[in-house]
């Protein structure tokens, strides 16, 4: 099934417009937190320990379905991507968006051969606590602990969250001089980021 066909099929399944094989509601309910109370899972990783199922680094090579990554401690890793791996690069996207030089964080399951079967890959994602130093046309200049960062507004994607209210596309309430938290996609080897979400106390 192509991706459009799959989308149509899934739409029908959730909105009940087509008959699809759907896992029963009882299966879901049994996994609700109340049901799981008292049967806490054992810790996957000890406090303070290195997490074997998580990789931080930059892409040094691409092969079909596989990312070659060098971590900042110079260790090398292979990350296996499948159709069930989510890939984020400013927005949810496909594995084709991965480029050599991209920074990444990946979470998955470490296989016996040392590769990471990835559940989720976040490309170039940054989370910065900043002060807004100036605002220009579709651009915000940010101060990140004394370093200058240029934040680009991407029409249709950049959202603002003011005082924990629902995200909106209207950025006009952002103020020069105020602090903000920025989730964005770093443009490799620059001090520029494309803005995904800006959290601000308006």
């Amino acid at each position: 099934m192509d991706s459009l066909g799959r989308r149509k099929f899934l739409t029908g399944a959730v909105l009940g417009t087509t008959a699809a094989t759907v896992v029963g509601a009882s299966t879901m309910g049994s996994f609700a937190p109340e049901a799981a109370a008292g049967q806490r899972r054992p810790l996957d990783v000890e406090a303070g320990a290195h997490d074997p199922n998580f990789i931080e680094g930059r892409i040094t090579g691409l092969r079909k379905g596989m990312l070659m990554v060098t971590s900042s401690d110079r260790s090398m890793h292979r990350i296996h991507l499948t159709g069930a791996t989510s890939v984020w690069k400013l927005r949810p996207t496909s594995s084709d968006a991965a480029k050599v030089g991209d920074g990444l964080y990946a979470r998955g399951v470490r296989m016996p051969d040392g590769t990471l079967a990835a559940d989720a890959v976040w490309l170039n994602i940054v989370n910065l606590q900043v002060h807004i130093t100036s605002i220009g046309r579709n651009v915000m200049h940010l101060d990140h602990h004394g370093d200058r960062i240029v934040g680009h507004v991407v029409a249709g994607t950049t959202a603002a969250v003011y005082n924990s209210t629902p995200a909106v596309s209207d950025l006009s309430l952002l103020q020069v001089g105020k602090h903000a938290q920025v989730i964005g996609a770093w443009r490799p080897d620059t001090n520029e980021v494309d803005l995904a979400t800006v959290y601000a106390a308006a």
Binding site: R91, N138, T157, T158, A159, P166, S169, L171
Partner: peptide
């Protein structure tokens, strides 16, 4: 920018 419902919302 255009007024859209952002994905984050």
């Amino acid at each position: 920018g255009p007024t859209v419902v952002p994905l984050e919302s």
